[in-house]
Each structure stands twice: as structure tokens, then as C-alpha cells.
Design a binder for these strands. Structure first.
Lengths: 168, 168
DNA sequence: CCCATTTAGTTCAACTTTCAAGAATGAGTC
DNA sequence: GACTCATTCTTGAAAGTTGAACTAAATGGG
């Protein structure tokens, strides 16, 4: 802490930082909105839900424990419970009991869910491409990757008393 | 369209693109979550609402027309209506009629709202710094700015038949 | 074995966001 | 002026999210 304690003037953002921050907020907001809309229209679900199906499709037996899935998707378990309930109603996911831990649940991607994914993957990839990868140079893609990696690292302290979403 | 019409195999993401995309989703999700939590705890409102107050605080007479504010914040007018209603209940914003257009409304930041902003700005800036600017090199900050600028440009077609959030 | 504690997951109530109308005013045209 | 259409903003219901409380099962001492 500085010599003036809590009275120290905070380090405000420089002009450049301020502009970058605004650009960040605008770009990320617009993109998430765009993808949400595209998927809601074509696949009948928001982007986060689609992401859950993708995760499941890549898991060993197309199934994952709830907490593991929440952790990978960076969402709370509560949110996941609701999401899976909805996806189950759609017939795209099925819950299964975990034999080795009776508290546990698996979420498994059904064939129907797999099919939804197949049908919508091209459109989704196209949307991501069009918004991001087709507009950035190879250099910029590399830079973006590194920047995002640094950011995520800072927000996932992994420390013993960290406040991670999937534990809340 | 390719020579095979709709049957053309879509251009999937390369391995690198895929990793960058995942990193992007994780980092942006974690950051938004982090800021939401920080502001909800300290200021009693989500990040988007805080952003609205900031916009108002920088506007000429600390007031803006609803549509203009929605446009700057990249949200729908409906969402803004609800948000302003909530902020008004808190006493942080007041609605005023527009004399030149009887359909119009101004949202004005109250003194109380200004005070909330003053109290919470340091904490908010610190959170942004800690997550972003203190972790990136000057070079990376510049790169991030340019990348976000390109992204936003692509998502705000400004074309005549564009689907812009603040018009929905 | 018993108890306290931790972990997995769900549920409830409060809140936010979206979508589809709808009310009111403005603007252009004949 | 009357008609039509566009614009501004709001509303209400449905969908999604959050944080806290809760159930049930596992874990780890005594």
C-alpha cells in the first residue's frame, strides 16, 4: 500500500487504455450477441447451451460429470443444472446416475443432440469465421491467442482459496 | 457459393484457430463474470448497469436520449427500458421528457448516481487493471485495441438493412 | 461406529434479458 | 387534413441467471 494508505489516488486508465477497454467491451458484447442470435434462430438455443453440447460431444463416452462440465464451461453448477434440465427436455441430453458416487450425475449427449450439433456446426463456424478469423491476419490471431491466454490465467488463480465459478 | 452448392464442406477451424477461440471464450467469460461479481458486491448492480451510469456521467448535461444510450451501450431499447426503470428505483437515474419530441425520454444521472459512481470507480478500475492492463505488455495492449476495433467493425455493418441491437 | 465436515447436485426466490406486441408521436404524401 | 408509414419507448410474459438454502452422500477423525 502506498505512503498515503487508502487515500492514494487510484491509477486511472490512460487514454489509450480507456479506448482499448471501450473497444473490448463493444466488440465482445456485439459478438456474443451475434452468436446468441444466430444459434437461437438456427438451433433453438443460446450460445452457452450450444457450447455445452460441444463439450459433451468431445468427451470420452459423450458424457461428463456435472461439476466437470461446469468447470470446463466456466459456469456455476446452478446454471448448469438449469441448462441441462432444459436440454434434457429437448431430448438432446440425458442424465445418468454415477455408479461409483451416488451423489453424482452424468450428462450424456443423445444421438438426437449429436444430430443437432452436426446440423448447426457449419453455420456456427461460419459465424465465428466471419466475425473473427476471416477479418484478422495470421499474426493477429496469434496475438489474440496469447492475450486471451494471459487474461484467463489471471482470472483463474487456482489458488487454494480462489473464487471459481464452478464451486459457487 | 462453391461449385457444390450447399453440399460444400464448410471451412472448419484450424487447430490454432480452435485453441484461440476456446481461449477467447474462457477469458471473456471469466472477465465478465469477475466484473459482474465485483460490482454487484460493491455497487449493488451488474456491470452493464454500471456502464450505463458511466456513459451518462460523460454526456453533456449528464443525460442522454434512450435510443442514443442504447446505441452507445450496444443493447436493445427494451433492455434499456427495464434497466433504467431499475436504476430509477435506486434513485441513481431520473427520466425526463424531451420537449422537442414528445415521444422521447432523457435518462439523467442524479447526484446520488454520480456519488455511487465516484465511490466505486476506483475499485472498478482496479479490477480492470488487475485482470487486463497490468498483465499485458504495452505492445499487447495496442494489439488488443486493434483487434477489437476490427471485430467491432465487422459486427456493426452500418449497412442499410443491418440488424443492430438498439433498433430491435 | 459416530459425528462433524466436505462435496455433488438441485431448488427456490429474486433478478435480468429477450421477444413479441402495443401506445403514442412524428413525418411524408396526396 | 387524413392516411400511411416510421420512430420512440414501454410493457408483459417467457426464458435464463444468480446466490443462498437445501438434500443426500462421501470423507475423515476420534
Amino acid at each position: 500500500m502506498g505512503p498515503m494508505g487508502d487515500m492514494t489516488e487510484p491509477r486511472w486508465l490512460t487514454d489509450e487504455e480507456h479506448h482499448v477497454w471501450r473497444a473490448y467491451l463493444h466488440a465482445t458484447t456485439l459478438l456474443e450477441d451475434h452468436l446468441d442470435r444466430q444459434l437461437q434462430r438456427d438451433a433453438g438455443m443460446p450460445h452457452v447451451y450450444y457450447g455445452l453440447l460441444v463439450q459433451l460431444s468431445q468427451a470420452p463416452r459423450r458424457r461428463m460429470r456435472m461439476t466437470e462440465l461446469a468447470k470446463d464451461a466456466k459456469i456455476t453448477r446452478s446454471r448448469l443444472s438449469h441448462a441441462v434440465a432444459r436440454l434434457e427436455k429437448n431430448g438432446w441430453v440425458r442424465r445418468e446416475n454415477c455408479p461409483s458416487d451416488k451423489r453424482g450425475q452424468f450428462a450424456r449427449l443423445t444421438d438426437e443432440g449429436m444430430e443437432v450439433l452436426r446440423r448447426n456446426a457449419p453455420g456456427h463456424v461460419a459465424a465465428v469465421r466471419q466475425a473473427l478469423f476471416d477479418r484478422l491476419s495470421a499474426e493477429q490471431v496469434k496475438q489474440l491467442g496469447e492475450i486471451m491466454r494471459v487474461m484467463a490465467e489471471g482470472l483463474e488463480p487456482a489458488g487454494p482459496d480462489a473464487d471459481l465459478p464452478w464451486l459457487r
